[in-house]
Amino acid sequence: MKLPHKAHVALVDGTTFVVMQNTGKPFAPELEAVAKPELSATNFSAGVRHQDPVSQQQGRTDLNELAHGAAAAEWLNARAIAGEIEGVLIVADPKTLGEMRRHYHSELEKRILGEIPKTMTGETSARIAEAISTA
């Protein structure tokens, strides 16, 4: 995947949110950490969709994790609306990514360069850059 110079990369899972920026070339990204925002998970709207008692008992749905994904999307929305983010690649585990999509603002949608449904929050920047290059 081509990642433009200075494009942002949002790494998200149910508990972690890290924003990085490409300081390298489009086909040879080099990622540098820009921010690790502290989010306040207040949007529990996913609870309306995830009322299945079996899933709750088996631990398949954690509303706190989904609320964290919603908060990450809201943080990205605010930066896109303010013009602080020109292009962003979102790398998130599939469940978090699905929740984030429900909260994208149209301004953020215009700036999304792509999505990678994969958990990469614990990986090194070199491994993340490699995953982006091969996507």
Rank of each mutant, 00 (worst) to 15 (best):
A78D: 03
G47C: 11
E107F: 10
A46W: 07
D13S: 03
L113R: 08
L3V: 06
L31E: 06
L11Y: 10
L66W: 02
A80V: 06
L76H: 08
H8V: 06
Q57Y: 06
R127T: 07
E30S: 15
A41H: 14
I90A: 05
S55Y: 08
T124D: 05
Q56M: 05
V48Q: 12
L89M: 15
V48Y: 10
M20Q: 13
L31N: 10
Y104N: 00
R101L: 11
N64K: 15
H8G: 02
E115S: 03
P94E: 05
G47S: 10
S45L: 15
E74D: 01
H5P: 09
H105A: 10
L3D: 07
A28Y: 12
V9S: 13
E74Q: 06
L39Y: 04
W75M: 05
T119N: 13
T124G: 12
Q56T: 03
K118Q: 14
T23M: 13
P117L: 07
A41C: 09
R111D: 09
I85M: 00
R49W: 08
T121Q: 04
Q51K: 11
V18T: 15
L89Y: 07
V9M: 13
G69Q: 02
P29V: 05
A73W: 00
G122A: 09
H5F: 12
F27K: 07
G47A: 07
A82F: 06
L89V: 13
L89S: 01
I90C: 08
T42M: 00
H68L: 13
Y104I: 04
E84R: 14
A73T: 02
A78Q: 07
Q51I: 12
R49D: 05
V48P: 04
P26V: 13
E65Q: 14
A67V: 08
R101E: 08
G87T: 02
L66K: 01
T15I: 11
R79H: 11
I85K: 00
A70G: 05
F27M: 12
L76R: 01
K110H: 07
E38L: 14
K2D: 15
I81V: 10
A7T: 11
H8I: 07
Q56W: 00
N64H: 15
A28S: 14
T96D: 06
E86R: 09
L3F: 01
E38V: 08
R60L: 15
D62H: 10
A92L: 08
R127Q: 10
I132W: 08
E84Q: 15
I116M: 13
I90E: 02
V88F: 04
G122Y: 12
H8Q: 07
H50A: 02
Q21C: 09
H105C: 02
I81D: 13
W75N: 11
A28I: 15
L76G: 05
V88R: 04
T124L: 14
A126W: 01
E107V: 06
A92R: 08
T121Y: 03
L66H: 03
E38K: 12
Q51T: 12
E74C: 02
R102W: 06
E65W: 14
R127N: 15
I132F: 09
